[in-house]
Design a protein around this nucleic acid. Structure first.
Lengths: 327, 327
DNA sequence: CTGAAAGCGCTTACAG
DNA sequence: CTGAAAGCGCTTACAG
């Protein structure tokens, strides 16, 4: 493969000049630019990012660290992150966090080894490790201790909206199901918003709010405990769409019909892909915009060496599906 | 950050010796190894992959090129590919193929620039470009012109199985819906297997088999044309689970009930995540095994410079869900 | 078994 | 505006 030296020889200029035209350095004569570009074309030259990276200590790569790409919410997010990163000429290294226990360790080491420029990270575990590795970081949904920047949705408003829609659809005995982590996260505001709206309207609600880690079986058990104790429940706000899907299956197994007997509203707005719908009723987060924002924030940190904390919250909207009744 | 030179100084050995112990070169005295390792620990040294990559022309990275990670089938596949790659100390660069039209071009250039060791590729468009870029390649579902290795499922058997299950579930008037690409792919055998099984059993079937590219709207239109012409249809084999989900929504809009009026069987076995189920009836591909095989094939090509064509087909199984009737 | 040295392909002061 | 040169942090023959 042709190297920069070959290009220089072909163009009849010095090595440095080739480098300058490639990097669009200011103050290069047009004639030189033309000669170099002609030589590049002729030799089909493409610069070696590794040699470049060795000098400039950057790889134009950001690592996306998440529990698992195998999840429609994360998959859509990753899709857009990659898309916006590619537009800015950055690459995406995919890191499935939850594969192995020592994964954090592994990925931090990798980040150092490979001159990862930055990290976009979705984890409800401790972020300190990344943070202290000195690599620019933006997180999703995380809380604001230790000045980590993050992007999230209007979780509090989303919780209120879910409650409001449930009531609007005729629910008289609402319930909540979801989990939370001991690390504070913005996501917890969904529960708060839900609770506060209902109390303002003079409603009580049955509550299954479990501290992680928690298995599916436990969630199922708790749901049915709740239903046994509160057989009048006729509407449930599920903290995520994933959970809604599970709840729907569990209810189906006991022959409880959705939405006739119990109406369900989820959170996230997941879709099977770009142009399909799951058809569930849910509070949709504007994922494309959120991904774009995360990319911009992280690139700003990298290129402008800014490291103050920034928090962006995006508005949510209600999507009517078939897990609520027609009004 | 500490460099190899620092480690050498700290350990009181030459640069080359440090390199040798890091790379587990044979014939290094145990005492040297110990000294070096101690220095590495002490200085918290981690080797720079870029300097290494510059010398050895490898990055321990494979690019996963696919239409879109935003798709449960691809997301699960990517999840396992990353997992197995990580086990072998390789990294995964994620490339969403369908973002932009000139993406192929872009990703090939990137591959060259970044010393991508290999490509795992899911695309039903032309693969020539990757192939001729001289980078080891394994594909999914692709056909065997030009000696490209691939892994796929027993598509023919899967098609037969779908037909068999439909009949077993009492379907009298089966139909097929799906699309195909002008590039021959193993996936087309699903249609063939389906057709042949039915004809062996003395059944006819209504067929919507469309050449891509095709929009959702066209698929929907064709489906209803078929249903108008063949109102007796009571069971449909959908070429993919994604499509099944759409078909289900379309039928719901016309108040055709599934599975009471029409039973549906899909193909793929997609799940929302590791421990949830969508609850649809489908022909499941063993994705973890397929991903593992793809990773092994590609690493074998890289490390053993093998480039003969290899084809692996994995057996499928029927998963009973709620889009077919209980028998 | 291990030093000393060359070189991978770039970038970037430093002269001029 | 552009050459010539040093150097980024490694690996790997080559001696010894």
């Amino acid at each position: 493969m042709a190297t920069m030296k070959d290009v220089a020889r072909e163009a009849g200029v010095a090595l440095g000049s080739v480098s300058r035209v490639i990097n669009h350095a200011p103050g290069v004569k047009q004639k030189t630019i033309d000669k170099v570009n002609a030589a590049i074309k002729k030799l089909n030259y493409v610069p070696d990012e590794y040699a470049r990276g060795l000098k400039v200590k950057s790889s134009k790569t950001v690592a996306l660290i998440l529990p698992s790409i195998w999840n429609l919410f994360f998959a859509e997010f990753a899709y857009y992150v990659e898309k916006y990163l590619a537009e800015k000429n950055y690459k995406l290294l995919l890191c499935n966090y939850s594969n192995n226990p020592k994964a954090e360790q592994h990925y931090i080491k990798m980040a150092k080894q490979n001159k990862i420029d930055a990290i976009i990270c979705i984890t409800y575990d401790d972020l300190d490790k990344y943070f202290y590795a000195g690599i620019p970081l933006v997180s999703i949904d995380r809380y604001f201790e230790q000045k980590i920047s993050y992007v999230t949705s209007e979780n509090y408003e989303g919780g209120r909206l879910a409650a409001e829609e449930l009531l609007k659809h005729g629910v008289k005995h609402p319930a909540f199901i979801g989990t939370y982590n001991h690390n504070p996260s913005d996501v917890m505001k969904r529960h708060k918003g839900f609770a506060e709206y209902l109390s303002e309207q003079g409603y009580e609600f049955a509550d299954v709010y479990l501290l992680e880690p928690v298995t599916k079986e436990e969630e199922e058990t708790e749901l049915f405990k709740l239903l046994d104790k509160n057989p009048e429940v006729d509407g449930i706000f599920c903290n995520t769409d994933s959970l809604l899907l599970d709840v729907k299956n569990w209810l189906a197994q006991r022959e409880i019909s959705v939405p006739e007997q119990i109406q369900l509203i989820g959170y996230d707005g997941i879709k099977p892909d770009f142009n399909s719908e799951l058809g569930i009723s849910t509070i949709r987060q504007p994922l494309p915009e959120m991904a774009k924002c995360a990319v911009e924030m992280v690139i700003e940190k990298v290129e402008q060496h800014r490291d103050e904390q920034r928090i962006e919250r995006f508005p949510v909207s209600y999507i009517e599906g078939n897990t609520t009744k027609n009004i």
